[in-house]
Simulated assay, not measured.
Amino acid sequence: MLSIEYLPFIFFIIALFYSSVGFGGGSSYLAILSLFLTDFYEIRSTALILNVCVVTIGTIIFIRNKVFDLKLFWPFLVSSIPLAYFGAQVKLSEEAFFLILGSALILSGVAMMLRYINAKLQSHEFSLIKKLGLGGSVGLLAGVSGIGGGIFLSPTLNLLNWANPRTVAALASVFILVNSISGLVGLGVADTFQIDASLLWKLILAVVIGGGVGSYLSSKKLNLRILGGLTAILVIYVGLRLVLMHGYGINI
């Protein structure tokens, strides 16, 4: 088993990889931290803080490159923030938490895979009600699962042909940012916010560097289909691993 000293390097790679498609990496942070830490609430709190660090960089870069469009994004955000806050206050057992997270990740990864293997990248606008409903439901799932939610929202929007992948990546980045902050507030109110400062600062440094590199790559005209496909494989693996480990005691 890897030593905890290797975590910063591992998290650097995760942040680089996930941020390149507009994600924070919270799902993988949770999965890996669960192998090293025993405090369930410390795992959730740490993952959300790292999410905020990564996607803050991504959001700034998307805004500077004029990919971020508040007129398109605001309905997803206003409905998700309060529900992410309330979702974060739901107190689940560790087993139930990881089973919910793992199942959601598998479905998310499959949806992402289906989208990126589709040769047609058409797009069409959603109604206001559809945006509010989708943003709110994903926000609630984000709060309960302890991650920002972009990894659920992005493949859904791509599968439904809402916009081009780069616009979706920009929305996912800011969506994760606001909902991770809302989730942290929810943990604080529920008195379940726990961190280990001596470990946290090393992980923050690692994900800030990795997230900066990944977000820069994402803002350029690269082949996001390949990045999206590779990320989908990683998401499915993480989800499957969580379900097998916490549901059946199988470690892969």
Rank of each mutant, 00 (worst) to 15 (best):
L141P: 03
N65T: 10
S127H: 08
F98I: 04
G139I: 02
A197M: 15
G58P: 03
S137A: 12
G87I: 01
L37C: 07
V174F: 01
Y41T: 15
A31G: 10
G146E: 04
A232H: 03
S34Q: 07
V185G: 06
G212Y: 08
I176R: 12
Y18V: 01
D39N: 13
I181V: 14
V90M: 02
L205E: 08
N179S: 02
A142N: 01
L7H: 08
P82Y: 07
K131D: 02
V52W: 03
S173E: 02
S154Y: 15
G139E: 03
S79N: 06
Q89F: 05
A119S: 13
S3Q: 10
I147Q: 08
Q194N: 15
G228E: 03
I4Y: 11
F11L: 04
K202D: 14
T192F: 09
R115W: 13
A119I: 11
A84I: 04
G136T: 07
L171D: 03
I252M: 10
P155L: 12
L48F: 09
I204H: 06
L234V: 09
L240A: 11
S34Y: 02
A232I: 05
V78P: 00
S80Q: 00
K131S: 11
V185S: 08
S173A: 11
V90I: 06
V185N: 10
V78T: 01
E95Y: 08
A111P: 14
L134S: 09
L48W: 07
S182W: 00
L101G: 06
G211V: 03
Y237P: 11
M112L: 13
S80W: 00
S108D: 08
G149M: 09
G136R: 05
I43S: 08
I129N: 13
A111H: 13
